[in-house]
């Protein structure tokens, strides 16, 4: 772990360096045009200075994004519509609700699939095939249809999130519930354990590592679902709405800060799940 801190820092610094260079290069055109219009000639230093502080740069410099992030998170009231915390919370709540629904249903379906052969043979091929389909494409339709039925607000977005996290959980959980070795199952037989006892004492504990792996995939997918679900609602609130509004009005700094906020959100959600995974597995004695 400690060995990789230096390399990671180097790579991050290189990325930041490339970012600055790209910002200078991409924004210079506009600066030069402005100067030409005003019939001024700028020195290289002046051009560079200007590229770092434009209002609507093609590519905002990292420090501009950082300032915007600080202003919209720490200096605005949380309830304000211009606060990123407010928008982030709206996206997060839809993500979590959808994730909970999707995971719950996924686990139930997986239990059904493991215990019922007809269900296994009919549903499993479709569950696997559905992973190859760009499900996100139906997001706008779900939103509009649910809106026209009268369901608005959190639920339509949560529905998309649920749908996206559902299949990874089903596939992972089925694998996990089937993971006990024949020898272990035989042992349960010799104890004359009933099917429910086998489930609670052997299959369910054995499936936990698989469950967490798919939860990590699922929660990242849920967040993407919630963000994309916010796109067609006409840019009301949420990180997706910030992205869309930013792209309509050319507010690149706003887009970048929403993007960074989404990245932080995704990273912390996945981080929380992996922390839970570590704690749970440690408590179960599966990993030290």
């Amino acid at each position: 772990m400690r060995q990789s801190i230096l390399p990671v820092l180097t790579v991050v610094l290189i990325i930041l360096g490339i970012w600055y260079l790209a910002a200078a290069w991409m924004n210079a055109t506009w600066t030069l045009q402005q100067a030409e219009r005003a019939e001024q000639t700028l020195t290289t230093v002046e051009v560079l200075q200007d590229t770092m502080q434009q209002d609507r740069p093609k590519l905002p410099a990292p420090h501009q994004v950082a300032v915007e992030l600080w202003e919209t998170t720490a200096e605005k009231k949380i309830t304000s519509k211009r606060s990123l915390v407010y928008h982030g919370w709206i996206t997060l709540s839809a993500t979590l609700l959808g994730f909970a629904i999707g995971t719950g249903l996924g686990i139930l379906l997986a239990v059904g699939i493991v215990h019922n052969r007809a269900m296994d043979m009919s549903v499993m091929p479709w569950a696997i095939a559905s992973q190859t389909i760009p499900i996100l494409a139906i997001a706008p339709m779900i939103i509009v249809v649910l809106n026209s039925v009268g369901v608005t607000g959190l639920l339509p977005k949560a529905f998309i999130s649920a749908y996206l996290s559902f299949f990874p959980v089903v596939v992972g959980m089925v694998k996990g519930l089937r993971s006990p070795a024949p020898m272990q199952l035989d042992l349960m037989r010799t104890y004359s354990a009933s099917q429910s006892q086998v489930f609670w004492n052997l299959r369910l504990p054995a499936s936990v590592p698989f469950l967490f792996t798919s939860l990590k995939v699922g929660i990242a997918a849920s967040l993407v679902g919630a963000i994309v679900g916010e796109l067609p609602t006409g840019a009301v609130a949420g990180l997706g709405a910030r992205l869309l509004a930013g792209s309509y009005y050319g507010q690149t700094i706003q887009i970048w800060s929403a993007l960074i906020a989404a990245a932080v959100l995704a990273a912390s959600l996945v981080g929380i799940v992996s922390l839970l995974e570590r704690l749970t597995l440690h408590k179960m004695g599966m990993r030290t």
Binding site: Q3, S4, L6, P7, V8, L9, T10, V11, V12, I15, L136, K216, A220, L223, V224, I227, V228, L239, L243, A258, L259, A262, A263, A266, A267, V270
Partner: peptide
């Protein structure tokens, strides 16, 4: 490079890149 890029790469792979 491998040590540095792999964690960063897998971090970015989990992000909502669609944004």
């Amino acid at each position: 490079l491998r040590r540095g890029l792999l964690p960063v790469g897998s971090f970015i792979a989990a992000l909502p890149v669609i944004g």
